[in-house]
Amino acid sequence: MDATIYHNPRCSTSRKTLEKLESAGVDVTVVKYLTEGWTREQLTKLFADAGVTASQAVRKREALYSELGLADASDDAILDAMVEHPVLVERPFVVTDKGTRLARPIDGVDEIL
């Protein structure tokens, strides 16, 4: 099985999810989205496939979330902010042939393995 993980190596949940995928024998493609960034189209598809909205996928604990006033923002405004500031995207997202999940909690990836 192949999987893609949108990964932040500084995030313990992201690291543990990557370890889980590797220990399950999955061939993992690692996308370091903080370096590579996002397009609006990528995020829109990723969220739709995972069954979440931008409001549900934004990192509310990130200082930028408050600084940019995103608590009352529309999903369109949140998407724009995520494209400009990739750190605002919750992590990690995992994509396999069986589906897409936001691995919070980590066990959420079990459904697509």
Rank of each mutant, 00 (worst) to 15 (best):
E62S: 04
E67K: 15
V95G: 00
V94E: 05
E41N: 13
M82C: 10
T39H: 11
T44G: 01
V52F: 00
L68R: 10
E36F: 09
L70K: 11
E67F: 02
T44C: 01
L70D: 02
L70N: 08
V52C: 11
G51V: 08
V58F: 00
R10S: 14
L64Q: 11
Q42S: 14
A81E: 02
A73E: 11
S66T: 13
V87H: 05
D97N: 10
V28R: 06
L34S: 08
L64K: 15
I78S: 02
D76F: 11
E36G: 12
L70V: 10
L68S: 06
E62A: 05
D97V: 03
H85A: 07
A71F: 12
A77P: 03
K98Q: 14
K16N: 15
E62W: 00
S14W: 08
E67Y: 04
V83D: 08
Y33R: 08
T53R: 05
A50F: 05
G69D: 13
T96K: 07
V30H: 05
A57I: 01
G51C: 07
V52D: 10
E41M: 10
A63K: 14
L64C: 08
E90L: 04
T96G: 07
V83R: 01
H85P: 05
R61H: 06
V31W: 03
F93M: 06
E62F: 03
E19N: 12
A71P: 07
D27L: 04
F93N: 10
S23Y: 05
K60C: 02
I78V: 14
K60F: 03
E67G: 08
Y65N: 05
G37Y: 06
R10V: 15
R61K: 14
S66E: 15
D49P: 06
R10F: 11
R10G: 10
K16I: 00
S12V: 08
S74A: 11
M82T: 00
A81C: 09
Y33L: 11
K32A: 14
T39K: 08
V95M: 06
A73N: 13
D27I: 09
T44Q: 14
L21E: 10
L18G: 08
Q42Y: 10
G25T: 09
T35P: 00
G25V: 07
T44H: 06
W38H: 04
M82D: 02
A54S: 06
E36T: 14
A77H: 02
L70F: 07
K98P: 01
G51A: 03
W38A: 01
A48S: 13
A50V: 09
R91I: 06
K45C: 08
A71H: 12
A48N: 12
V95L: 09
K45G: 15
G25A: 04
S14K: 08
W38E: 03
L18M: 13
K16R: 15
W38K: 09
A71M: 03
S23I: 05
